[in-house]
């Protein structure tokens, strides 16, 4: 099995390092032809507006959307979650999403970089907490009925926001497991496919 890591912009190399530490073959995807040999895709953190423009200009958007519609598994972190979601809130007017998972995502939902934070997160199916690293992170505002919420962030006064969601073989997190060097969420993704 080969996992493609979308390498248009962002923290793609860190995802590759984690996947390779798990013994998985990876390849960087920048051009449509590079989609051919992959069995799953990781969309990394970075700037979602930059990535979506490069996807369109490189004529990668349609072939990627088709692969996802055919059931190719995908893991998106932060910007990757925005791109894989069904709806973008507070995005650019021309910004599109791939609609692979039924979540609505608000860009920069926690504020600017000075508000970026780390916080331990309980994750369904894992016995120890995951270090949630949130960098200008998006907020998942709504999830469809087919979406499992695997982790939520306590935002006070009894409310919680979903931060790790799965629908079939699409996994998205609004935080960055690749920045903690913790391979467990990548393992969870690989086990689901």
């Amino acid at each position: 099995m080969t996992v493609g890591v979308l390498a248009l912009q962002g923290a793609f190399a860190l995802h590759q390092r984690i996947l390779e530490s798990l013994g998985v073959a990876t390849t960087q995807v920048r051009a449509p032809r590079e989609l051919a040999g992959i069995d799953a895709v990781v969309i990394p953190g970075g700037e979602s507006s930059t990535m979506s423009m490069l996807l369109e200009r490189g004529e990668l958007w349609e072939p990627l959307a088709e692969r996802l519609a055919d059931g190719m598994p995908a893991f998106g972190t932060c910007a990757g979650a925005i791109l894989l979601g069904r709806e973008i809130l507070d995005g650019r007017d021309d910004q599109r999403c791939l609609a692979a998972i039924d979540v609505a995502v608000r860009r920069n939902g926690y504020g600017r970089q000075v508000d970026s934070f780390e916080e331990p997160l309980a994750v369904a199916g894992l016995d120890r907490a995951v270090n949630g690293v949130f960098i200008r992170a998006p907020v998942i505002e709504a999830v469809g009925s087919g979406v499992e919420v695997l982790s939520s962030l306590d935002v006070g006064s009894g409310s919680a926001q979903p931060v790790l969601c799965r629908e079939r073989t699409i996994l998205v997190s609004t935080f960055h497991p690749e920045l903690s060097g913790d391979a467990r969420l990548h393992e969870m993704f690989l086990e689901s496919i």
Binding site: G10, G46, T50, F117, V133, F134
Partner: peptide, 20 residues
């Protein structure tokens, strides 16, 4: 547990700008 301004958070944004 909610920490802002950590080294990981600060270097993390630079990681997100790579390739850009």
């Amino acid at each position: 547990p909610h920490e802002t301004g950590t080294v990981r958070v600060k270097r993390g944004l630079a990681e997100m700008l790579k390739g850009g």
